Simulated scan of single mutants.
Amino acid sequence: MAKRILALDDDPDILDIYSMAFGAEGYEVKTLLSPDNLAGAIVDFSPDLMLLDIKIGAFNGLEMCKVLKQSSITRDIPIVIVSGLDCINRAVEEYAADAVISKPFDLITLVNTVDRFLLAKVVPLGRVVLED
C-alpha cells in the first residue's frame, strides 16, 4: 500500500508539483488549497505525512502545525513546513514541525526529506555463509 501525503498550500502550482513529484515516487497524494476541510481530509485520507505552507490565505500553517502536534489523533504524523518566509526557522523548535524546507525548493531535497520519514529503514542482517 502506498504511503499517503496530505499537502496544504494556497498555490495550485505548488500542489501540482507535489502531486507530480510524489506520484512519480509511488506516493498517494491529496492536496488542499485551504484548511477548510483539513480535519475531514485527515480522517478520510489517513495521511502518513503532511506538507504545510506557513501562509495559507488568512491561515497560519505554523499554528495549524502546533495544534496538530498537540492532538492525540495527529501528533505522530510527520509535518514538513514548506515556505519562503523567514519565520520557517522557528517551525521545528517553537511549533513542533518535524522538518522544514525553504521555497523555492529543490525537488531532490523535497523528495529526500519526505523519503526520510516514509521509507522503511532497511537493517542489514549480515550474510550467512553455509559450508558443505
Score class of each variant (00 low, 15 high):
Ile108Lys: 08
Cys87Phe: 02
Leu6Ala: 08
Ala2Ser: 10
Ala96Thr: 12
Ser71Arg: 03
Asp16Lys: 13
Pro47Ser: 13
Thr109Ser: 04
Phe105Glu: 01
Leu119His: 09
Asp16Phe: 07
Gln70His: 04
Gly26Cys: 02
Ile77Ala: 00
Val29Cys: 06
Val82Met: 03
Thr31Tyr: 03
Met1Ile: 01
Ala58Arg: 10
Ile5Ser: 12
Leu8Asp: 03
Ile88Trp: 08
Pro78Trp: 14
Leu51Tyr: 11
Val80Glu: 01
Leu68Thr: 06
Ser46Ala: 15
Val129Trp: 07
Gly40Ala: 15
Met1Leu: 07
Ala97Gln: 00
Gly26Arg: 07
Asp36Asn: 14
Glu25Trp: 03
Val114Pro: 00
Ala2Gly: 02
Thr74His: 06
Val92Tyr: 05
Val80Tyr: 00
Thr31Ile: 04
Phe117Gln: 04
Lys69Gln: 07
Ile5His: 09
Asp106Pro: 02
Ile79Val: 14
Ala2Tyr: 07
Ile81Cys: 14
Asp44Pro: 12
Asp98Asn: 15
Leu119Gln: 14
Asn60Gln: 05
Leu49Glu: 05
Ile17Thr: 01
Val80Gly: 00
Ile17Arg: 00
Asp10Phe: 10
Asp9Gly: 04
Glu93His: 13
Ile54Trp: 03
Glu93Val: 11
Val122Gly: 07
Glu28Cys: 07
Ala21His: 08
Gly26Lys: 03
Ile108Pro: 00
Ala7His: 05
Arg4Ala: 00
Cys87Asp: 09
Ser71Asp: 15
Lys55Leu: 10
Leu107Thr: 04
Ala39Leu: 14
Ala21Ile: 13
Asp132Cys: 14
Lys103Met: 05
Leu8Val: 07
Leu52Phe: 15
Leu118Val: 02
Leu119Lys: 13
Val82Tyr: 00
Thr74Gly: 02
Val92Ile: 15
Pro104Val: 09
Gly126Thr: 09
Phe105Leu: 05
Leu85Asn: 02
Ser83Val: 02
Gly84Pro: 07
Ile73His: 11
Leu6Trp: 12
Pro124Gly: 04
Ile56His: 04
Ile79Glu: 08
Ala91Tyr: 11
Val100Phe: 11
Ile73Arg: 13
